[in-house]
Each structure stands twice: as structure tokens, then as C-alpha cells.
């Protein structure tokens, strides 16, 4: 596997221009996650309106994989009901751990993260923001 396969263009694009990334006011932070092994740090907020996720935003510092996966996650969540979101998160985490395969339609641009599965030390980078989203839903009580 070449380094370009791990860091595909679409992943680098999300890293360089993360979507829904903006400095959060302390008061709106729902989840504050750190990966102590590499020092990655992500803060996340989310809103639910009429039973559906309306908005996900995050800030923080991290490697290309963690920021890109957070960016992709933030694009996926809006429009889903909390239960749908939890299923998506569980599927994605299982996919990254190599416990489950997902078809291309479900994956979409997340397929760009598939290469991470070959690097067990980096799987945590790719799942951190998704775990954070799961916690955010819990915090919101939905």
C-alpha cells in the first residue's frame, strides 16, 4: 500500500478544508475528546430539531485522518434521527475495526478512510470524532 492510498485526495481535501469546523464558544461545547496517545483534541457541538440532527460543528487539533474523519462525520449527521445516527456510527466504527464491511453506497466518500484499516495504530484517529458524536447525542438526551 502506498502512502497516497492512505492519504487520498478526498481525505486531504477534508483535512485542508474541514467542513463545519469553526472555533466553538466554551458554553456550547457538548463533548471534549482527547486521544492521549497522540494528543489529538476535538470539541464538538450538535443540535437536534424536530427529532432530527440539525447541525454538527467542531473545532480542535489533530492529524489529517482525525480531522478529515470529523469533517466527513459532520456532513453525514444532519438530517438523521438520533437512532439513525447511532446506527451509522456503530456501522462506521465496526467498519474501521475491520469487523464489518459496508457497501460503496453506504460508504460514499468515507471509502477514502478505508486505507486506515490497515494501520491499527491509526484507527483511533479515524473513530474519535464519531465516538464524540455518540456521546453528544447522549448528552442531549435524545
Amino acid at each position: 500500500m502506498e502512502v497516497d492510498d492512505l492519504y487520498q485526495d478526498i481525505l486531504l481535501d477534508h483535512f485542508k478544508h474541514p467542513r463545519h469546523f469553526q472555533p466553538l464558544a466554551d458554553g456550547e461545547v457538548l463533548v471534549d475528546e482527547e486521544n492521549p496517545t497522540c494528543g489529538d483534541h476535538i470539541r464538538l457541538t450538535a443540535r437536534v430539531e424536530n427529532g432530527r440532527i440539525a447541525d454538527v460543528r467542531f473545532d480542535g487539533k489533530g492529524c489529517a485522518i482525525s480531522l478529515a474523519s470529523a469533517s466527513m462525520m459532520s456532513e453525514r449527521m444532519p438530517g438523521l434521527t438520533p437512532d439513525e445516527a447511532r446506527r451509522r456510527i456503530a456501522d462506521y466504527v465496526a467498519f474501521m475495526r475491520g469487523e464489518k464491511e459496508l457497501d460503496e453506497g453506504t460508504l460514499g466518500d468515507l471509502a477514502a478512510l478505508a486505507g486506515v484499516r490497515q494501520f491499527p495504530l491509526r484507527v483511533k484517529c479515524a473513530t474519535m470524532s464519531w465516538h464524540a458524536m455518540d456521546k453528544a447525542l447522549k448528552k442531549l438526551g435524545v
Binding site: V3, L6, Y7, C38, D40, K61, G62, C63, A64, I65, F119, R122, C125
Partner: peptide, 8 residues
């Protein structure tokens, strides 16, 4: 990021 650098 250091991890990206080391990997690259």
C-alpha cells in the same frame, strides 16, 4: 501532525 509525518 507528527503522526502524519511519521506515517508519511
Amino acid at each position: 501532525h507528527p503522526h502524519d509525518l511519521a506515517q508519511f
